[in-house]
Write a protein that binds this DNA or RNA. Structure first.
Length: 654
DNA sequence: ATACATACC
DNA sequence: AACTGGTATGTAT
């Protein structure tokens, strides 16, 4: 039954257990450093262990679909090539190549740093006995395997029961996210000594531009990185690998070259770079995963050098492969812009949870509510709202589906409302057996930025010019959309700033018990219900400035909407009784905050700082309060629909 | 606008 | 038995 498909060029007939399926099952991070066992043997064991499981069947399905897709592409290619002068096509591509080449910039020294087996290394710090033992971090799924475990074929992303089969001695540890987070911050702060504007890419990686540091310290990039890695090891006992190259893509590929505890510098010469890329597996290019690897392989592309050889076909199939992206990979050209991830770049926020398959709607809704609670927490904590809610669910067969709904108002972030929207999306699908449910909000609006700009406005109103030198306003020109990067097609991951999911057990807020009908819970919610999450941390006030507005959408991005907002409801206490005769005077001892009316032992600067803080909290609350009236109607409508006895009922299954 | 797939850590 | 979670992006319709 397990006949391997050894044909190179013809459409592979997807035998069960085809080569590609075995590779698929082996997980995304084969090709990673450190294996000893024969990979085909490993693949065999993995397939054997997974056989018959739902997961396995789903992988088989996806593999079949991929095979069909390849057949389609090959047909497309054969048609496209008909009666075409391939030389002409190549000439066209060569022009494009020349244009790309002209953009090559070798002036910046970019470093990609990557901590070695990060979670595992931290575990060793906390329990040295683990060193030299095969172990893995992560419960159901391996997050990180120790190098010892990797020798057995244990990989991140692998189910732990499979890993156990590959390595019966394997020790499986739970994750300790707080520890990783702490160590991550410590290491990152060392990196920042070399480039204060470094870009953190997940909890164990980052990009630095060390050009300036090297200039100022008259040190070579290699020595700089050697020193940096040594300091990390001295100060944290963690090891880091690094790649040094003229851009982010190359640096990332290079950091993998001498993986545990090593570094690699690429020559800053076009010829050296092209030679480096020429024999490199296409799979090493960030953005080319297993699927694209197989797609490209089907048209004869395994290495980056092959991109050039097949440029005519790629040009004809530009739509499916992305010619320019691949040519840049072939040339080793990519962005060298290194910036800290910007808050305003965030595109979505969500939460999801996997559980043992459930069919009972009540239980499914309970899970949905958990997820809504978690999402509310994150959205409030981080100050976001948005306009589109997407429900995601995974059947017990591992098939994934999504259902989305957009609003023309900013949605409420109350868990009851998120839950109601999710319920509305899920209900019509219902008789289902699910193993995962999730909610995600997109079309975001940054309530913190808004709050702060509001704070600025109010401050101005109070005349607190405070020339005496209150906290520098980081004036940041927003007017003319300053140049923007003219070529930062950044394909590199821009992952969560702190890198960690907050899915820790223990903060589950009380789950309200209205599973069936969320409408019960809102009507007369006292305003104070918005004041949950009193755990506001004072850190927030330092953030970035920005512009105004809240709630009503009008133009979703318009920078300068007039604050049609009601002035902060400081109402009751508004009289700003500052000090006797000198309302805006400089130094005084006891000042009353006009917002929260607390008496503060501070001077004017201190008061201003406090007002900033107070207003930003206040504005967030108001924004959320304002949006409360928003999403609710949709739910009301949904209820109306249901009650409306069959006028417009959702299609019920079965 | 929505659904789905792919990728990355 | 058992196969994550969060975010971004591209493509098709």
């Amino acid at each position: 039954m397990a006949e391997l498909d050894r044909s190179g060029s013809k459409p592979p007939s997807s035998t069960p257990d085809s080569d590609s399926l075995l590779r698929r099952l082996a997980g995304p991070s084969v090709n990673k450093a450190g294996l000893a066992k024969d990979q085909t043997e490993i693949n065999r064991i993995i397939a054997e262990v997974s056989k018959g499981s739902k997961f396995y069947e789903n992988e088989k399905r996806k593999d079949r679909e991929l095979t069909l897709r390849i057949e389609r592409i090959l047909r497309l290619r054969d048609e496209a090539v008909q009666g075409v002068d391939l030389n002409k096509v190549e000439q066209g591509v060569d022009k494009l190549i020349a244009q790309l080449e002209a953009k090559r910039d070798l002036s910046q020294a970019i470093v990609h740093v990557d901590m070695d087996a990060f979670f595992a290394s931290v575990e060793v710090l906390d329990n040295p006995e683990l060193a030299s033992k095969p172990f893995a971090v992560g419960q159901g799924v391996v997050s990180t395997a120790s190098y010892e475990a990797r020798k057995f074929g244990v990989r991140s992303g692998m189910a732990t029961f499979v890993a156990k089969r590959l390595c019966p001695e394997l020790i499986v540890l739970p994750s300790h996210f707080d520890r990783y987070s702490e160590m991550s911050s410590r290491v990152m702060s060392i990196f920042r000594r070399y480039d204060p504007t470094m870009c953190v890419a997940g909890c164990d990686e980052g990009y630095l531009n060390i050009t300036r540091y090297c200039d100022e310290h008259s040190i070579s990039p290699e020595d700089c990185v050697t020193q940096m890695r040594r300091i990390v090891q001295e100060e944290t006992s963690l090891t880091v690998s690094a790649g040094i190259a003229p851009n982010k893509m190359l640096a990332k590929i290079c950091s993998d070259k001498n993986k545990p505890n090593g570094q690699f510098k690429l020559e800053f010469e076009p010829e050296a770079i092209k030679a480096f890329m020429h024999d490199l597996s296409i799979r090493k290019v960030p953005g080319v995963g297993r699927v694209n690897e197989r797609l490209l392989e089907s048209i004869g592309i395994k290495t980056c050098g092959d991109i050039f050889r097949q440029r005519a076909v790629l040009s004809l199939l530009d739509k499916q492969f992305g010619l320019e992206f691949l040519l840049q990979a072939y040339l080793g050209i990519a962005s060298n812009v290194v910036q800290p991830g910007q808050r305003e770049e965030r595109k979505s926020i969500g939460a999801e949870r996997t559980f043992n398959a459930l069919s009972d709607p009540a239980k499914i809704y309970a899970k949905l509510e958990e997820v809504a609670t978690e999402l509310e927490h994150d959205m409030v904590e981080e100050g976001w709202t948005g306009k589109t809610v997407t429900l995601k669910y995974k059947l017990n067969t591992f098939e994934v589906h999504t259902r989305a709904k957009s609003f023309d108002r900013w949605i409420s972030t109350r868990k009851e409302d998120l839950f109601a929207i999710g319920q509305e999306l899920l209900k019509p699908e219902l008789p289902l057996t699910l193993r995962l449910i999730g909610l995600r909000v997109t079309k975001l609006k940054d309530l913190k930025a808004e709050a702060e700009s509001k704070a600025r406005g109010i401050k101005r109103f109070f005349g607190s010019a405070s020339s005496t030198g209150s906290p520098q306003k980081k004036r940041r020109i927003e007017g003319p959309q300053a140049d923007q990067d003219d070529e930062d097609h950044d394909h590199s991951p821009r992952l969560s700033q702190d890198g960690f999911a907050i899915s820790m057990p223990g903060y589950d807020e009380d789950i309200e018990t209205d599973l069936a009908d969320a409408s019960a819970s809102h009507g007369a919610e006292p305003e104070t219900s918005l004041y949950r999450h009193p755990t506001a941390k004072p850190k927030s006030s330092s953030g970035t400035p920005s512009h105004s507005l809240l709630s009503t959408p009008s133009s979703s991005k318009g920078p300068s909407l007039p604050p049609s907002t009601s002035p902060p409801r400081m109402g009751k206490h508004s009289p700003l009784v500052l000090n006797d005769s000198n309302p805006f005077g400089t130094s005084s001892s006891a000042l009353e905050c006009p917002i929260c009316s607390r008496m503060l032992e501070t001077d004017n600067d201190g008061l201003n700082a406090h007002i900033d803080f107070c207003l930003s909290k206040q504005a967030i609350k108001e924004a959320q309060a304002a949006s409360l009236q928003t999403a609710v109607p949709s739910k009301a409508a949904a209820n109306a629909e249901e009650r409306g006895a069959g006028l417009l009922k959702y299609k019920k299954k079965g």
